[in-house]
């Protein structure tokens, strides 16, 4: 089911959170809303979910006008950063909540809830309370709860933001696989570019309440529309006044065309890569090299080299 917003404006007092935002999310895709905090991406997600009302603009979900429809009747699944687990209900009852509200028959609920608990690998925890689960388990429960009502779209607000790095990585892979199985149109908010690049089919970069660029992860990485997108999506350094990716720099030990003369200031090994810092006449670029490259060039601090962007 597709999502479409037109001309969304949202202000909080004098602060403009969203400024005339048009967004298209195609059916069945996994889309990331990526941007720095305070950029408006969560507000946009909450407007799509009906938890926030826009000051202007329209929202359509599955080609149906949804702007004035209350959250209860939008049939969306929403996952919150801090899980919003119903603390007084068991894992089973948490997942069953939406179905109980919809007054589905008991055995249908039982069947559906057990299916979902299996999907999120929590079937043996059905009788536990949320307080007895780890953060990652709670978030998987929240996902099962959101999916239980067969939502037309699934919205996740910084779903892994409160988890530690390792669990976050596991859940990220798992979300990707889950989406490949379930195929529900999914939009998730993140400020972590790595997460967006790794998981999503499409990334929407949002900053200062505006959409900066929309595209596939590789499009955005290779053909950023502006310096902001380039800086936000990966490491950058400055050479000859232009932004370049540090792994897109070539180093030579003698003069070549278009290269800038530089002095090696510092070499730092980080695992398999070597980070080389240079000083040119008026800049201090750095390059990301493999160990092999660094050794072949016999780089030492104080060496004179020539640096130029690839291509």
């Amino acid at each position: 089911m597709s999502i479409e917003t037109r001309g969304i404006v949202k202000r909080f007092g004098n602060f403009v959170a969203l400024d005339d935002v048009d967004l298209n999310v195609d059916s069945g895709r996994l889309t990331a809303l990526l941007g720095p905090s305070g950029g408006g991406k969560s507000t946009l997600l909450r407007i799509i979910g009906g938890l926030e009302t826009p000051d202007a603009g329209t929202v359509r979900i599955a080609n149906v006008e949804a702007t004035g429809v209350p959250a209860q009747r939008r049939n969306v699944g929403f996952v919150f950063q801090h899980y919003a687990a119903f603390k007084h209900l068991s894992v089973y009852r948490n997942v069953a909540f939406g179905l109980e509200i919809r007054k589905r028959p008991k055995d249908e609920i039982r069947k559906r809830v057990m299916e979902l608990l299996e999907l999120v690998h929590l079937e043996q925890f059905a009788d536990r309370l949320p307080a007895q689960l780890s953060g990652g388990q709670r978030q998987r429960m929240a996902l099962a709860r959101a999916l239980a009502v067969e939502p037309s779209v699934l919205l996740l607000d910084e779903p892994f933001g409160a988890l530690d790095a390792k669990v976050r990585r596991e859940l990220r892979d798992w979300l990707r696989r889950l989406h490949d199985d379930v195929h529900v149109t999914t939009v998730f908010v993140t400020h972590d570019q790595e997460e967006a690049l790794e998981v999503s089919d499409e990334i929407v970069v949002i900053n200062h309440g505006r959409i900066e660029q929309v595209g596939s992860p590789s499009d955005l990485y290779d053909k950023p529309a502006n310096d902001f997108v380039m800086e936000f999506l990966g490491p950058v350094t400055r050479l000859g006044g232009a932004l370049v990716r540090p792994h897109d720099l070539e180093i030579f030990t003698e003069h070549v065309d278009n290269a800038v003369e530089a002095e090696v200031i510092r070499l730092q090994r980080i695992g398999f890569e070597v980070r080389a810092e240079f000083r040119t006449k008026d800049e201090q670029p750095w390059a990301q090299l493999t160990r092999g490259q660094a050794e072949a060039l016999e780089l030492r601090p104080g060496n004179r080299v020539w640096v130029r962007p690839v291509g």
């Binding site: 009906g50 969306v76 919150f80 939406g98 709860r145």
Partner: peptide, 20 residues
């Protein structure tokens, strides 16, 4: 947060109050 989650899952204001 819990009330909002209940709301998106279809609970009316009264249901949010009583159940959450």
């Amino acid at each position: 947060d819990m009330e909002q989650a209940a709301r998106v899952l279809g609970a009316s204001g009264w249901q949010q109050f009583i159940r959450i």
